[in-house]
Design a protein around this nucleic acid. Structure first.
Lengths: 342, 342
DNA sequence: ATAATTAATGTAATCGATTACACGAAAATA
DNA sequence: TATTTTCGTGTAATCGATTACATTAATTAT
């Protein structure tokens, strides 16, 4: 139907050159006011649309940024992406989404695809911490493409990151459980090669030690982030000579599983057993027995990552900037652990 | 650090022309086997990466597709996007995300931005049904960019769609509530200018009539998709001379709010009151009092939309195809409405 | 041995926009 | 009036890849 209109078409119609049209459209001050107006009006009347691919090729900037996450259908990552999109949209950037499904091979592939696609930056949460993809990360940096890690980061030279203080988060929850009078607190951890889980565990450990309690590795259970994993973990724990009377789970889903299993065993929550999760998934506050959790402010994390990226973009110089932003976690105390009503 | 390598660099090194390099890399059969091998190896050793922007400009295809949704941080839309990404990724397409926040102006803007960005297709859920953006939609079609609506559609000539049978969904839930012995069923609807809500309402209405029950508009409450809206709606309903004994909510969140409010009033669910939602949000099955809901298979919807897009892409001819795919809804009966244990 | 094919590569235009440089005309200055 | 500036446009190269159309070399056919 409607053929693509280029600046050449406008130029032809006005008997001027494409260069003039281009300058007029870009408000180049060297263009006569009358010409500019004429070009603008003609462009509008011909329904001209700038071909951003041509611009991208010529300028070397695609105005696209890539976002890599394990999966998009998780409240946390979706919210981060929302934040990124909202912050970047006003600046004319489009957001390209990639998923790794926790697979390092996919991660590597995504990195290359995005680089090939000439994105102007990559914001991502790493999949795991093997150094398998370190070369790929360095490759990004060497190509002068700003790379920013959010939530799950790795230490790569020249890469900025936006995370939350997982140590503090773990510490806060554990301290809270201790304050509720819990005497033996178990911890569900995730993949300990990831800093986030390592730090939550450390926070847990230090909170225990700081309160004069003992840290015992056998109360740390590595589990997946799923309801079933939580149930299984409780089954294991309840066979101990001294079963715990509280759980700090690094995953809200596992926390939920734990609660379900404990209830199946007629254990009273929070009277006899306290449970707390991490991430503040929407469902934690919806439950009748709402679940205590740590909020990671994903929206803010996304926006902040975007801002760090924008900053990095501005420095056209080859200066390598490395910014580490750490957001504060927020403890939401709910019924699953609130013994005392304030 | 590493300068961008182009086919000209390879050509220079091998003392041949860029054309030959291009052909070799594209496995053009006219190229001598030895040359091809040499080029391939040199390209690899020089760490050559094809500049997809150049390719895009030249071919007029960006290998990007745009996805427009009201917001990404909703389980439904995130899952659809996941489906789209997974289906399109193997075909070399990247997915660009845009959000409208239910704002038609943003929708319009996103459509134009994506068109400017030369996306090869647009997959979207419309924001509302004013004809405000109809020109923009037709513009997309006229530019020969495949446009596919999912979930929330409009009838635009030449636009395909993938939806679920909302009428059937509404009918199934309502029929189920009737089967549970409910005598007066209220309905929470959404924006009735949207087909999805119109059809769910119709399904509700026909299920009532088919069972010899009366349909009364005053039991249809238009509410937002939020917990609070659900609570308020219950407050209104309970003031009626004859309050309902069941609710079919078009939104899981409103259904949850309704349940909370009903419980606050010490009404027994499901014994004295049944509640059902729509969308099968993850939390509906997590609750202690799990919530009956209708699954819309968002993942499948995303994949199907992607497939319809791919089909459309193949037909390079100017033939206008219009495909309407309707997925089957699936009723998940849970505690909030299950009076009889099967 | 010569003409006709075929195989392999080179030449140059193209996609659409930007921009350094060139240039003529008008305006300002001497 | 002659000369220098300034202003507004035009010319042409560039970004990196693809490809229709030569062109040359090698092979086959006559």
């Amino acid at each position: 139907m409607s053929e693509k209109i280029t600046i050449y078409d406008i130029a032809e119609k006005l008997n001027i050159t494409a260069a003039t049209v281009s300058r007029a459209l870009n408000n180049n001050p060297k263009i006569k006011e009358s010409t500019r107006k004429l070009v603008m009006e003609t462009a509008a009347s011909m329904n001209y649309k700038q071909n951003r691919l041509a611009l991208a090729l010529q300028s070397g900037r695609s105005n696209n940024i890539g976002v890599i996450v394990p999966r998009i259908d998780s409240n946390f990552f979706a919210s981060v992406i929302r934040g990124i999109e909202e912050e970047l949209h006003p600046h004319g950037f489009q957001v390209i989404i990639c998923q790794t499904h926790e697979n390092p091979k996919r991660e590597n592939e995504n990195l290359h695809t995005l680089l090939d696609a000439q994105v102007d930056g990559i914001l991502m949460s790493v999949t795991d911490v093997t150094d398998e993809n370190d070369a790929a990360f360095r490759n990004i940096v060497n190509n002068n493409v700003p790379l920013i890690f959010f939530d799950r980061k790795k230490d790569i030279n020249g890469v900025s990151s936006v995370t939350i203080d997982d140590f503090k988060g773990g510490y806060m929850v554990t301290k809270h459980l201790i304050d509720q009078g819990c005497k033996c607190i178990a911890h569900f951890s995730g993949d300990l090669s990831l800093e986030i889980f390592k730090n939550r565990l450390l926070g847990y450990k230090h909170a225990l030690l700081d309160s004069g309690m003992t840290f015992d590795e056998k109360y740390v259970i590595q589990s997946k982030s799923s309801v079933d994993a939580g149930k299984e973990a409780v089954e294991t724990l309840m066979q101990y000579d001294i079963p715990p009377d509280a759980i700090f789970s690094s995953s809200d889903f596992a926390a939920l599983g734990a609660i379900q299993e404990l209830r199946a065993r007629d254990i009273n929550i929070p009277a006899d057993f306290c449970v707390a999760g991490f991430s503040n998934e929407p469902f934690t506050k919806f439950m009748e027995l709402s679940i205590t959790s740590v909020d990671q402010s994903p929206l803010e994390m996304g926006k902040m990552s975007a801002r760090v990226f924008l900053e990095q973009m501005e420095k056209t110089d080859k200066i390598m900037i490395e910014k580490k932003v750490v957001l504060k976690p927020e403890l939401h105390i709910r019924k699953s652990s609130a013994r005392t009503t304030h």
